[in-house]
Amino acid sequence: MTNIGCTRPGAVTPEAILAYVDGDASPDVAQHLRTCPACASEAQVYSRLQGRLGGALYRFDCPPAQALGEYELGLTSPEGRSGVARHVLDCPHCMAELLSLRTFLADDMALAPAPRGGPVEGLRRVVATLFVPAPGAGAAALRGGTDGEGATYRVEDLTITLGPGPPGPRGRASLMGLIVREDHDLEVSAGSTAHLLSATGEPVTAAIDELGSFAFDDIAPGNYGLELHLPGLIVAVEDVSVGR
């Protein structure tokens, strides 16, 4: 197809004119449009049409930023959460906004107390207690206060599930854990860590990922204490037996 009145019929296609409007055209097309009033006019029509459609429709069905914020804070209803999640997966703008909100909200510096003496002083420390044995964790490697099962511990709105990981070489053991926060996403930061403490050896440290999971590999069977260092909070789990 070509434009009525084009000075060189067939020189450029309508798609090429559209590409020119989008900034994607070749120099040949740009050169033609500088000399052909009909094609230049056509480009102007496309430009205005796109400008007005874009002005009216741009992000017309995106949730308001406030809704993204409430989603991030776990204040959205279950139905609303799935709707926002579906949209965010498809919308790069909302995805970027959600990630920037997550980063911004994870930083509690303005609310944090002034540090005193050490990195953990002034943090709240709570002790998780055994809730129910985790079903299906059949291996006898970890007792967590009960015999022969994985275990679930709770404190405040946190649930910590511990279970045996794959057995290591030469009788060594492993431990896997998952932290879940009731009602909303767990807040973890780059410094969120899990520490396995024994009476006889150096503590072993593992990172807690953004989903709240952590793992200790190749550890000696024995009784341990577990500390989870989360933003503003240390959660202690006592008497964790591994590989016995």
């Binding site: 400008g51 874009g54 002005g55 741009y58 914020g69 703008h93 909100l101 609310l111």
Partner: peptide, 23 residues
């Protein structure tokens, strides 16, 4: 409140981007 401080700015960015489309 912290979230409100962030989303007020995000919405302004949206507006600026949207108006770029308008003649």
């Amino acid at each position: 409140l912290q979230m409100c401080a962030a989303t007020a700015v995000l919405d302004e960015h949206r507006v600026q981007r949207a108006t770029q489309h308008e003649s």
